[in-house]
């Protein structure tokens, strides 16, 4: 980066933003005297909105594993005598055009809708860490990788994901790859910046050829320094990945029928919006809640890991 603002604190807030431009600075911010785990937890617990986030997330995580099991009906079971019926005691959130229970479908869809976000970010994180390490460790690769990263960063918002899906074709798998790739740049820059700093601080290491042991050492060092910001950052990224995946499914580029992915449920419900609005409202509310939970949790986590915010 060309500019180094003195007012570094402001960059700390950039992570509110999915497209934070200065991850290196952000990394600098959140580090500091390491907290003990219990103190972080204490700070998290005291923060009311973070607690709410934790509760919401816990419910959704539970639904990921048990959603299908606790659903009142089989999410794929059709009942042609009972189609598009309004919410009632039998069907809490109504039924769809094949008489399937909407509530059960949403519960069963939790796994699909949320794990997409986690997997996409896992893909982005692993590619990003790899590229960042290589770029930071080997000068010969640095330029090439960073120019490539610059190219990826030239695509605003959803554009890169949409472009990748447009090329590879629709489907949840391609959606995960696309969203993963579009979160590579920030991770790569974060890691690279940290590696360079470690190398800078250790003249001997910087001077001699790197052996496998050194690389492992650097990696460990980098990881310790950067774990906290990466965790916080990834939390926000998961939220936006879930959002992006449901957006692509909504456009018809993601999940395939009969999978009850939430974005697809809304896309399919939309054709009945005027006669059966619950088909849109119910899954939409679930997406919003899930993203809200993750963001609240992220906010709390950031505050808890920030050494400057008192207890």
């Amino acid at each position: 980066m060309n500019k180094t603002p003195k007012n570094r604190r402001s960059f700390f807030k950039n992570i509110l933003q999915n497209n934070s431009k200065k991850p290196e600075d952000f990394a600098r911010e959140i580090k500091g005297p390491p907290h003990s785990k219990s103190r972080v937890w204490l700070k998290l617990k005291r923060n009311k909105s973070a607690l709410m986030g934790i509760i919401i997330i816990s419910i959704f995580i539970m639904l990921i594993f048990f959603g299908e099991a606790i659903a009142p009906y089989d999410p794929l079971e059709t009942d042609y005598q009972n189609i598009l019926s309004a919410p009632s005691l039998d069907n809490w959130l109504g039924t769809d055009f094949m008489g399937r229970d909407v509530f059960s479908r949403i519960l069963a869809g939790t796994r699909l809708s949320l794990t997409v976000g986690f997997i996409a970010i896992a893909i982005g994180l692993s590619i990003g860490v790899f590229l960042g390490l290589v770029a930071g460790l080997y000068k010969s690769w640095d330029n090439l990788i960073m120019r490539f990263i610059d190219v990826l960063m030239a695509f605003p918002g959803l554009l890169l994901s949409i472009t990748i899906v447009a090329t590879l074709g629709a489907g949840l798998q391609n959606v995960m790859i696309a969203i993963g790739i579009s979160s590579v740049p920030l991770y790569a820059r974060l890691i690279r910046g940290e590696v360079l700093k470690v190398k800078e601080n250790d003249y001997i290491l910087a001077a001699r050829a790197l052996g496998a042991k050194d690389i492992r050492l650097i990696f460990q060092h980098v990881l310790i320094n950067i774990a906290a910001p990466i965790i916080v950052y990834s939390t926000f990224r998961v939220a936006s990945a879930v959002l992006a995946a449901s957006s692509l499914s909504f456009l018809g580029l993601g999940a395939q029928p009969p999978d009850p992915e939430w974005g697809r449920l809304i896309n399919q419900g939309r054709q009945y919006m005027l006669i059966a609005p619950w088909l849109v409202l119910a899954p939409g509310t679930f997406i919003t809640l899930a993203i809200l939970g993750i963001n609240l949790f992220g906010d709390g986590l950031r505050d808890a890991l920030d050494p400057r915010i008192g207890e």
């Binding site: 849109v280 409202l281 993203i291 809200l292």
Partner: peptide, 22 residues
């Protein structure tokens, strides 16, 4: 503010259409 960026914009769009339009 939080709701602003937690509501998926396609969902918000449909809500606005339903409420203010319809």
């Amino acid at each position: 503010a939080l709701l602003g960026f937690c509501l998926p914009n396609f969902f918000l769009a449909l809500l606005l259409q339903l409420l203010f339009g319809l």
